[in-house]
Write a protein that binds this DNA or RNA. Sequence first.
DNA 1: CACTAAAACGGAGGCGCCTCCGTTTATTAC
DNA 2: GTAATAAACGGAGGCGCCTCCGTTTTAGTG
Lengths: 206, 206
Amino acid sequence: MASEPSAIAEQKAEAVEAKPLRADARRNRDRLVEVAVSVFAERGIDGSLEEIARRSGVGIGTLYRHFPTREHLVEVVYRREVEALCAAAGELAQKHPSDVALEQWMQRFVDYIATKRGLATSLRIVLTTNSTLFSDTFGRVSQALRQLVEAAVADGTIRGDVDASDVLHALGGIYSAPDTPEWRDRSRRLVKLLMDGLRFGAVKAR
Amino acid sequence: MASEPSAIAEQKAEAVEAKPLRADARRNRDRLVEVAVSVFAERGIDGSLEEIARRSGVGIGTLYRHFPTREHLVEVVYRREVEALCAAAGELAQKHPSDVALEQWMQRFVDYIATKRGLATSLRIVLTTNSTLFSDTFGRVSQALRQLVEAAVADGTIRGDVDASDVLHALGGIYSAPDTPEWRDRSRRLVKLLMDGLRFGAVKAR
DNA sequence: CACTAAAACGGAGGCGCCTCCGTTTATTAC
DNA sequence: GTAATAAACGGAGGCGCCTCCGTTTTAGTG
């Protein structure tokens, strides 16, 4: 995993309502989150918190001071990943024609959900329990998607009679039931299919 | 808690696909469930399994042999309580005029949900995770209610243009959000209100 | 009854969770 | 630079989870 590109996003996200942490505290906190990403990825959402502390080189007490419950930590990790996904929208928009950017982002969305396979159930529980988390992240993803769709509609690379909600709705099927073996391939095909539909009748032919 | 009226219901429920347990095993299993009911009621759904084993006078290993996970135990307890609630429908139907039976059963339904206050969140999680459990119990409750409603419609103590689904739907509000202090009273009033509505326009005036 | 195989028992042990509090460190004031 | 103090650290300890396996009990058989 990358080591420090997080601090930027983190800073922005936290700035809302947090007095500045002491330098060592901030360092440890960042490292804990970093490590938590790996451990959750390797062992699932039930990965040991003590392992996270150990690998981060801090005591278990430090972990608990920063994240009073497992859910707090999961939430931060989850928010961070959603943030990264959304940030990718901006980057893709700069590097590619807007229809391609949209397509690539959707494929990345598939990858992102794929990571959550297995975690799906537990994650769904966290999301059920914490509805703010759900609505926040849903909002962020919608916004990222809207940006891409509107750009593509504006420059005519996809048809004009759809909006972000339509596309999000179409992607809904991906979010659910990612527990079958063929899920990933099917999802990739779904994205392509969707793009064909979107390009069909676009102002600017390819 | 009562000591042994469970064996009957239990036997019937389990008979579906279980070879007969050895006498001691059956005894311990029953006792574990019995105790689990109390412990979950006292301490919430996160009550200690070791305490349940201890109070039941068996080793923790025995508990785990019968119920490999906490969820297994929760499920059995939950099914049992739903079963008791549904069984009450038959009893009430014999003892009371059918409209009164319906009303009393609905009040009992309120009591039942009340017990689940606090447990609500965790229980909802179990229900989300285990959809069979949800549909099974939903079905059982519907059936009990249907029996009562149909009887009352048949003998004209409530109006004829409603069915069990309508009533269940009306009770839906009780099931959700039982976490406010006034919940219980409000629910009781709701049931009365509903009964007034049901009696209004009945064939047989009271 | 006595014997035996199969079934059930139960608790020790290893691991993770979480709290509590004595120790260490960064920051601020002089 | 040094002292003081607020903040952060970290791990021991108590508790619960769950597994594993030696011991005990039951239900058949002669």
